[in-house]
Amino acid sequence: YQDQEQRILKFLEELGEGKATTAHDLSGKLGTPKKEINRVLYSLAKKGKLQKEAGTPPLWKIAVS
């Protein structure tokens, strides 16, 4: 689980600052079920590491501290 968090954070960091992506996109790029990706995304957002942008589907990006 920790491993997934690292992979997602790394992927988003590599996208570049301010760039956002969807759970669907992450799921495809990382070869992980979207349900699992979503769980990790919401967990990271709760920890303040990610920012969720409203929309359908929601967009995710690295939180700027």
Rank of each mutant, 00 (worst) to 15 (best):
Y1G: 10
Y1I: 07
Y1N: 15
Y1C: 11
Y1E: 06
Q2V: 05
Q2P: 05
D3T: 08
D3I: 08
Q4T: 13
Q4L: 15
Q4D: 09
Q4I: 15
E5S: 06
E5I: 03
Q6C: 03
Q6D: 11
Q6W: 07
Q6F: 06
Q6H: 08
Q6V: 10
Q6N: 09
Q6T: 12
R7K: 10
R7T: 07
R7Q: 08
I8F: 01
I8H: 00
I8Y: 01
L9P: 01
L9A: 02
L9E: 03
K10N: 11
K10A: 07
K10T: 08
F11Y: 12
F11H: 09
F11Q: 10
F11D: 03
L12C: 06
E13C: 06
E13D: 09
E13W: 06
E13I: 07
E13N: 09
E13R: 10
E14W: 05
E14D: 14
E14M: 13
L15N: 04
L15M: 15
L15Y: 06
L15E: 09
G16V: 02
G16Y: 03
G16H: 03
G16T: 04
G16R: 02
E17K: 07
E17Q: 11
E17L: 05
E17V: 11
G18Q: 07
G18S: 09
G18L: 05
G18W: 03
K19I: 08
K19P: 03
K19N: 10
K19G: 14
K19D: 08
A20K: 08
A20M: 14
A20I: 03
T21P: 02
T21Q: 09
T21S: 08
T22S: 10
T22M: 02
T22F: 02
T22E: 01
T22A: 02
A23I: 04
A23T: 04
H24D: 04
D25G: 06
D25K: 11
D25V: 13
D25W: 09
D25R: 06
L26P: 00
L26H: 00
L26R: 00
L26G: 00
S27P: 00
S27I: 04
S27W: 02
S27F: 02
S27R: 03
G28M: 10
G28V: 15
G28K: 15
K29M: 13
K29A: 14
K29E: 10
L30Q: 01
L30Y: 03
L30R: 00
L30F: 15
L30E: 01
G31M: 11
G31Y: 06
G31K: 14
G31D: 09
T32H: 14
T32P: 03
T32R: 15
K34F: 09
K34C: 09
K34N: 06
K34S: 09
K34E: 14
K35E: 09
K35P: 11
K35L: 05
E36I: 15
E36W: 08
E36C: 13
E36Q: 14
E36F: 15
I37T: 05
I37L: 09
I37H: 01
I37V: 15
I37G: 00
I37W: 00
I37M: 11
N38R: 13
N38Q: 12
N38C: 02
N38Y: 09
R39D: 07
R39Y: 09
R39M: 08
V40P: 01
V40E: 03
V40W: 11
V40L: 15
L41R: 00
L41I: 04
L41Y: 02
L41F: 02
Y42S: 10
Y42P: 01
Y42M: 12
Y42A: 12
Y42G: 09
S43C: 11
S43D: 10
S43N: 15
S43F: 07
S43Q: 10
L44F: 01
L44W: 01
A45K: 15
A45C: 13
K46N: 05
K46D: 08
K46F: 04
K46S: 09
K47V: 10
K47S: 11
K47P: 00
K47I: 07
K47Y: 03
G48N: 09
G48T: 02
G48L: 02
G48Y: 00
K49S: 08
K49Y: 09
K49G: 03
K49P: 02
L50M: 04
L50G: 01
L50N: 00
L50E: 00
L50T: 06
L50A: 12
L50R: 00
Q51Y: 12
Q51F: 12
Q51H: 14
Q51D: 10
K52D: 02
K52R: 14
K52V: 09
E53V: 09
A54V: 11
G55P: 00
G55N: 06
G55H: 05
G55L: 03
T56L: 09
T56M: 10
T56P: 08
T56D: 08
T56V: 10
T56I: 08
P57G: 02
P57T: 04
P57Y: 03
P58V: 10
P58L: 04
P58Y: 03
P58K: 04
L59K: 14
L59Y: 10
L59P: 03
W60H: 01
K61T: 10
K61C: 04
K61Y: 05
K61S: 13
I62L: 14
I62W: 03
I62R: 09
I62A: 08
I62V: 13
A63T: 06
A63I: 07
A63M: 06
A63F: 04
A63V: 09
V64L: 08
V64E: 15
V64R: 09
V64N: 13
S65I: 03
S65R: 08
